[in-house]
Design a protein around this nucleic acid. Structure first.
Lengths: 175, 175
DNA sequence: ATTAAGCTGAATGCCATACTCCGGTTGACC
DNA sequence: GGTCAACCGGAGTATGGCATTCAGCTTAAT
């Protein structure tokens, strides 16, 4: 593969991720192309269709997140700290949203698997934090994860958002 | 106006509000019609176009909310209580969202005014609660209102949602 | 210099959705 | 219970946005 092609492929993926994070899951191919300073045709040279591009970006990102998550998981830090760090890390990721939404048309098995794994990791972490006594115990793991999703998967979300801050404070177990 | 027309007009408004709350701001005229058990033609008999219907529903709802808010405001209850009650009251309202979003196409002056008034009322309330010492003071009124908006204006939001609960807990001033 | 891989973006086709309209229905008044 | 204007239904039309294609031009690599 020619060097410029390689570069463009990565540029497309990065740009797509960025736009998805900032403007939500409805970005058009045209928008992505323009933001990357390329023509739409180039996107289609690298990805057969829109879904492909989305899947590819999702898979890459989810894999990174999963790796980071597993690393954190086996650290010695208190579970609460771990959770906060992972949430920060995930912020701005709209892809979990794309996939976790009851979106009928989504079926890519790789992405689905990754989402499931990430979900399980998160839930385990939440439940550990509850056992540790740092996270309020009146919600199920799934509920907490669902709620963190809202905080994290918003167009334009940032880790130091008021929303994220307040939500995390609200999740902290009362003294 | 014929009795059935009157009935249908109200049915349309109610159904639209309900669907907007449950499925978000992208509901189609067809969906609303079907949910109301009517034909699309009937919607257009009562409202010249989609925007009209949305504006009408928004204006009615916002007026009700504003009245309820003003009543609460002049009650003797602690500001925190008042705030919680109003939030509960607003939950499921997607219209504030429609209007408060940077949606370029929205210009109806009535609705804009109502939104502004409701916003001001909310902010005043939040700031009073902060002075009262029941609401954390490290956020501006506007930030708090924005964040409550997220909680309240989601498709399918409910007042006893984990999200709303946790968010309110996170907003409470620390002892 | 050669050339195949790469790039562009106007043109195409598709689909969802707002909106229209005419034939059939019905409430209201006599 | 008859009349009729208001009302309703829903197939059909118009439109706009978006994914996707492709013919002609560029450029990296040798």
């Amino acid at each position: 593969m020619r060097a410029d092609a390689q570069r463009n492929r990565e540029l497309i993926a990065t740009t797509a991720l960025d736009l998805l994070a900032r403007r939500g899951p409805a970005v058009s191919m045209e928008e992505i192309a323009r933001a990357a300073g390329l023509g739409v045709g180039t996107l289609y040279r690298h990805f057969p269709d829109r879904q492909s591009l989305l899947d590819s970006v999702a898979a890459t990102t989810l894999r990174t997140l999963l790796a980071a998550g597993r690393a954190e998981q086996s650290s010695a830090a208190p579970r609460w700290q771990v959770l906060v760090r992972i949430v920060a890390r995930c912020t701005g990721l709209p892809l979990a949203l794309i996939s976790s939404l009851p979106d009928a048309t989504r079926v890519d098995p790789t992405v689905a698997d990754l989402v499931a794994e990430l979900d399980a990791l998160f839930q385990g972490l939440v439940e550990d934090a509850q056992r540790e006594g740092s996270l309020r115990a009146d919600l199920t793991g799934a509920q907490v994860v669902g709620l963190l999703n809202v905080a994290v998967c918003r167009p334009g979300a940032r880790a130091d958002d008021p929303l994220t801050t307040v939500l995390l404070d609200g999740l902290r177990a009362r003294p």
